Simulated assay, not measured.
Amino acid sequence: MYLSEVKQAIINSSELVIVSHEYPDGDSIGSSIALSKGLLKLGKVVKTIIDSDVPRDYQFLAGAKDFRKPKDIEVHSDSTVIFLDCADETRAGALIDSYREKCLLSINIDHHTGNTNFADVNYIDVKASSTGEIIYDLLDLLGVEIDEDIANALYISMVTDTGSFRFDNTTAKTFAISSHLIKVGVNLSAIRINLWENKTYNSINLLVDVLSTMKFACNRKVAYITVTREIMERWKGNHGELESFVSYPKSVQGIEVAMIFKEINMNEIKVSFRAKNNIDVQSIASAFGGGGHKKAAGCTINTELAIAIKNVIDYLEKKLPQ
C-alpha cells in the first residue's frame, strides 16, 4: 500500500471521521489534530472521535476541544473513517465495528509492528517514529500548508513517541521534520511547560504512591510498578498521567525490561513494556495478545491484578537470558 492511495481515498471523500485510540497518548492526539486541521483546509467535513478524555497535558493544543465522544457523533453511510495510531481493532474502542459497517470506506494509518490491517485501506510504516510523522508526509502529498497549529500538533506526536528524541525510533528524518516544524512556528515554551512543568499536587502524589510499588524480578533485570484502582481514586488520577511513569523503573541501572501494570477495571489489566537494550518486548506483549514495537509495547490481560503480574513474570523468567 502506498501513501498516494490514502491520499486519493481522502480526495474522493467529502466527510471524514478521524478516530483516535482510547487512553490516548501524545501521538494519537497530535496526529488526529494535525490531520483534522489539514483536511479542513481542503474543505472537507471533518469529525474527530475519541472514546476517552483528552489528557490534561495536551488540552492546550488548538483543536483539543474539537474531539467528541462516539455517542455524540453521527456517522453517515457516505463517510470515510480514518483510524490513527491503532495497532488493532480493540485500540479504537467499542464502536469500531459500527464505524466500519456504517461508513463507505475505512482507512488505517499506523506505525506499530504487528498491525492487524483491519481496515479497507491500510498504510503501516513501522520505520516511522510516530503516526504524526506519517501524517506530515500525507499532508505534504495533499498539498496542505502546515501552519503553527498543525506544527505544534505534529511536534507533540514526535516528541512524545520518541521520548524527547531519546529512543531508537528517532531518525534523521524525524529531526528534519522537527526542524521544519520549528521553522513554521512550534511553541516550544508552551510544549515544555504543559508536558513537563505543569504537574498538579495530585499528580505528584500519584507518582509517589506508584513508585512505592516498584519491585524487581529476573535477577534484577526486570523492574515493574503497579497502579491499582484504589491509588487512582485516591488522587483522582487519569490514565493519561501514567504515560511517562514506566520510564522510572526503566531508568534503574541494570534493568533490561520495565513494566507498568494498570488496573483499569476488575479483571482488566493493561500492561506497558519498555526495553532498554536488545530485549524484544513486542514479542512479549504479543504472547499476551498485545503488540507494539520492539522496545515499547503493551497488552491487556483479563484477570486479577496479582495473577496478571505472576503470569508475566513467570513468562519472563523463562524467556529472558540468564
Rank of each mutant, 00 (worst) to 15 (best):
N198A: 15
L206E: 05
S247I: 04
I182V: 14
Y248C: 09
R229F: 08
G185D: 08
S212R: 13
A217E: 12
S251R: 08
T213I: 08
S178L: 02
R220G: 03
L188I: 08
R234E: 10
I182S: 10
D209P: 08
L181E: 00
I182D: 10
Y248S: 13
S178P: 01
R229T: 03
L206N: 05
Y224F: 12
K183P: 02
N219Y: 13
S251N: 14
W196D: 12
L207M: 13
V208C: 10
A217W: 05
H180P: 01
N219D: 14
N198Q: 14
Y224N: 03
N219E: 13
T213K: 00
W235P: 10
S244D: 15
N238E: 15
N194G: 03
I231S: 00
I204Y: 15
S251T: 11
L195R: 04
D209M: 06
K236C: 11
F175A: 07
F175S: 09
D209Y: 06
N198V: 08
I177F: 01
V227G: 02
L195G: 03
T213A: 01
D209C: 07
L188K: 09
L188Y: 05
W235N: 13
V208Y: 13
I204L: 15
V184F: 04
V252M: 06
K236V: 06
